[in-house]
Design a protein around this nucleic acid. Structure first.
Ligand code: SF4
Ligand code: SF4
Lengths: 132, 132
DNA sequence: ATAAAACCGGACTAATATAGTCGTATTTAA
DNA sequence: TTAAATACGACTATATTAGTCCGGTTTTAT
């Protein structure tokens, strides 16, 4: 029912590492080798975090990543949305593509919608620093 | 990150329906047809709930299911464990089969373990009646 | 200049988890 | 005895997640 995806875990591990490195740049390879995370997969995750301004990056032979925001100011909800595109607990609440065939006769939409709100509030309250 | 499985949703819809039916027995077919849920899949879900004493069943031509416990006395945690066998948010916390290759170098196990406890408490507090 | 090492990004494949199906046995009222 | 229901386990199909591959571009030490 609830499962942190590997991508999300890799992101958390990386953010912790990069945060600890301070001003020093961290290469994808550093993290990849230290924690045994597939290089190419990790690279794409960090690229996404860069694109969303959570990380800074510099290219070139001495390039790498640094942290652009403080971990205690990034809510988990934001990270989950970046990595997994959605925080909805059932498909019918992810407006874009609701394919549920039983929407019309479904009797639990409303209560689940309440739960959804509660859940989103929790995700907004928890900061990345709580997870590393 | 968090997603109610269809099985779980079908279980909730069924429990609500059976609860509303009171002493009258409900057949799998009644629910299956009313809510457009695949019959055989639903049957197995209800069988499981019967096995765990959440439902009562009677066989034979006039058979069917009735509720054996009150919905406001069944915590969500129990239903999730029945339907999905686990409430762990990462594989390394589901003792039986931890295949995570990076367990040794993982830096987020401890914080996630705290989150896991918090999460389980929420699941224990929420009753099925909150979801229907 | 050029080589090296990084970032970038899309298409692809592999592995796993979820959803759904099928066949058969058992029970029971009529 | 037959029809309609639960009960169980093996199977298949689909969707999601995880991971790979490849062909770029950018930067910088030499
Ligand atoms: S309509 Fe009901 S069954 Fe379908 S996705 Fe929404 S909550 Fe789940
Ligand atoms: S060891 Fe770390 S990465 Fe592996 S499952 Fe546990 S929390 Fe996730």
């Amino acid at each position: 029912m609830v499962k942190f995806s590997k991508k999300l875990e890799y992101a958390l591990i990386s953010l912790r590492h990069i945060s600890n490195a301070g001003a020093e740049v961290t290469r994808v390879r550093d993290i990849s080798e230290k924690y045994n995370i597939p290089h190419d997969l990790l690279a794409k995750i960090l690229q996404k975090l860069k694109k969303e301004n959570i990380l800074d990056s510099s290219q070139g032979i001495n390039g790498g990543y640094t942290l652009n925001r403080k971990l205690n100011e990034i809510p988990l909800s934001e990270l989950v949305n970046i990595i997994e595109n959605s925080t909805s607990i059932v498909e019918c609440m992810h407006d874009e593509d609701n394919n549920c065939m039983i929407t019309d006769s479904c009797t639990i939409k409303d209560p689940l919608s309440r739960i959804q709100s509660e859940f989103e509030n929790i995700l907004k309250t928890k900061m990345i620093s709580d997870f590393v």
